[in-house]
Nucleic acid binder design. Sequence first.
DNA 1: GGTGCCATATCTTCGCTGAA
DNA 2: TTCAGCGAAGATATGGCACC
Length: 363
Amino acid sequence: MIMETHGDICRLGYLRIIPCLLEDGEPKAFDFLGTLLFEIVKNAEDEDFLIEKPIGLITRPVNARNYVTLAAELDLIDRRSQTLGNFGKLYLCMSSSARFRRLVEGVEPLKLIDLLMLNDAEKLFFLWALFARDYPFIQLIASWAIKRGKFRRQEAMIYAMEEAYPQSLKKILPRSRYDEVEEAEKLRERRLTIGDKLEWIKSSQYAKYRHIAPPRFEWLVDVGILKRSGRGKYELNQQMIYDPQRVLKLASLTPAKIEQYLFNDFLKPLSRLYRRASRHDVFKALIEVYGSMARYFGEEVDLRRMECMTVLALIERGLIAELNEIHDSFNSFALQFPDKIYVSPGPGGRSSLAYIDIRNLEI
DNA sequence: GGTGCCATATCTTCGCTGAA
DNA sequence: TTCAGCGAAGATATGGCACC
């Protein structure tokens, strides 16, 4: 679960720049990254887009820095080494990252709308990262939001902080930190003792609410589940590419089961938007994804992750294939080219590692 | 009244120095 | 060589305020 958030960090789109800043492999202090991020985005203009009054814009180095912290929480950055984290490496394996590389290199400027809006593959990527890293808080919030359909921010904050937050802490914190759970369970009681609304809004408890709950609803807007319907109001996004019932199912799963569902049944509604990938498409995408992943993770790459990334790579090309199909294809390619494609057990036997000799493989 | 943005106080970690 | 003490730098939590 993401423990550090700030009211500023509402836009996931900015996070795509951060892995590109770390691609050289050199460790970078968070303040330095924040300054770089600020310098890159400060000149992005877009008068048409600004009419919609988007929130969470980077306007100062200090809020750019808060985005760097969020990137670390989402494992785009590895906090200890201050280099690329696992999700940061995975994002760089997507072809969608190319334009942010060019932006960082100063080759191609981008408009504000390009910095903030995610394409479908990126929406799925961030949904994956959020549900994996903010478990179980984001799941509870997403379920509540879908069941409500339409709601005000105030009521959403109350639910998030007084129900979802204590439940989530209870699930993830060890017994030694049970006092934090007990503190969270008293939030409602404490709020109710503050009679005056003005006093409530000025209270430190309200300040805490503002920094923890609202960004999460904005993230659900960015991944396409919710949409803003006026100041401080949200509703279900009727144009969402997903099926709300499948989002509810996804929100009920433990992190270990998320990938299996997200990249299989969850994708079925996308079939009406994308052309079915052929075996040749799948093979080509697998080889390319392997090539990218080998660059960041070494020659033996996590098979499951490679297959998930292949789903995203196909969506980037306007094609769709589910994880099970990709897995079957990989197995048949491994049988066809046993000397060039093989799988070995990963550390601890939990995952499988794939190796593909791409130099001598004819597609 | 509610929201979004910005600043800063406080806490934590890191790294250097010198004494044992 | 180890470790305590200290200052600096970095990280985090919270509060204030302008504006809608």
